Amino acid sequence: MGYFFVIIISQNALNEDIRRNYELFHRSQPVSIWLRSFSKFFIGIGGVWPILATIIAFNLIIVNVLLAIYGRCDVGLALIAAIQSFVKFMIVSLLLGSMAFFSSSIFKDRAVLKSLAVLSALHLLFLIVNVWFGWKLVPPIQYLAKLLRFDSMEPFHIQDVGFDVYNYIKMKWYQILLNWKILLQIGVSALLFVSGTLIYKHKEVK
């Protein structure tokens, strides 16, 4: 549900003022277009994060209280799991929101649906080219699905770890968060923001 809100808000980030005929007024204000664009970008994506963090914290407290009643509470592990869920949402929502934001700079209405239609057409074209010429081009949708995948930690049994479970989790988290894929995901999001803002900046306002 959180991803849905991010997409809906972000796909209207750069075209809502145009539809409501406010764009000329806003562009006449002494505010950098990059600053206005970033504020819309951040609100569309980051605006959902505090809400999700509050929900996760509330669930964490309630669940741990209930588990403590039965003597099976491990606050440390529960907190790690909650943080992992939140970080996963942040990364994936950043990418989805960036894509929707970029789409809003190109299409005036139903930006995400139109972008999906274009991607589907390109995906089909890539498949045809691969079959026709025997190439191995990666179709766009397949690449995006791989890019959106968050490498979360695999399930494990404490008795199989062989040493302190917290050190094991810490080591795994470093491997998950400090890698090239995370940098690529952030870099793609930044590129989509810059590209979308440039298109928006040079778009003719009628």
Rank of each mutant, 00 (worst) to 15 (best):
L191G: 14
P50V: 02
I176E: 01
Q29T: 06
F89Q: 11
L116I: 11
F86P: 01
F86C: 01
I182W: 00
W49M: 06
R36H: 05
G47A: 02
F193A: 06
L124Q: 00
L178Y: 00
I158S: 13
L66P: 00
P50A: 02
I56D: 06
W34F: 08
L192E: 06
V48F: 02
S32Q: 01
I45V: 08
K88I: 00
M171L: 07
Q175V: 00
S195R: 03
Q11N: 10
V63N: 15
G2F: 07
F107T: 09
I199F: 15
H202R: 15
N130I: 04
V161T: 08
K181L: 00
Q185M: 08
V112Q: 03
S105Q: 09
S189F: 02
V131W: 09
L177P: 00
L127S: 03
A57Y: 01
S195L: 15
Q185S: 01
I55M: 08
I33L: 13
L191S: 15
L113D: 08
I80L: 12
G46N: 04
D164I: 06
S98I: 04
L125E: 00
G2N: 06
S37P: 03
L198E: 14
Q142L: 12
I141Y: 04
V161P: 05
A100L: 10
I69C: 01
